[in-house]
Amino acid sequence: MNQTAEEPIGRRHFMERAILSIFGAIGVMLTPPILGYILSPVFRIREDLSQSTRWAPVAPVSEMETVGDLPRTFDVPYRVKEGWRVRETSRQVYAVRKGGELALFSTFCTHLGCPTAWDDAKRMVICPCHGGLYNNFGEVIGGPPPRNLASLEYKVENGVVYLKDPANVYEVGWKDPRKRA
């Protein structure tokens, strides 16, 4: 008697479990591929960067000789790999003579990455987004930026100054990941 009364409940119980497992299995089949699909560019950053321009020409050395104490802006054309495409683009760098040495630093504000500009009248590098202020060597003198404008590596070859890794984005945020290594 007891067994016949319990049987439907056992069946019902089984079906509930089965429904759960069926949908769970569907979820398992769908979720990881979709997540991987969406996040695929994240995992490919390094590879993409390695296929972008490593050394981009900034200007001839003769032109760099004329740079003085105040930063001058240079356009740097380079190619960057994005997904399936290699895109031609350009960015800017500041060049300044610091203690007799040529120094290149980024134009991207370290706060949120807005394009800064040198203001001749105020004699400061000014970020138009949130009023970050830097002096002529890219050192923070006010506003929200967390650190100085990123200094950039360069090399001189055949009388031309080349900028290293123009496509890399380590110029914004608290830390410079290059220094950690």
Partner: peptide
């Protein structure tokens, strides 16, 4: 940093 990369589809704003 992960959020930024996941949303922008890379380290910087591009086609992706």
């Amino acid at each position: 940093r992960f959020l930024r990369s996941a949303l922008l589809g890379g380290e910087h704003v591009g086609t992706l």
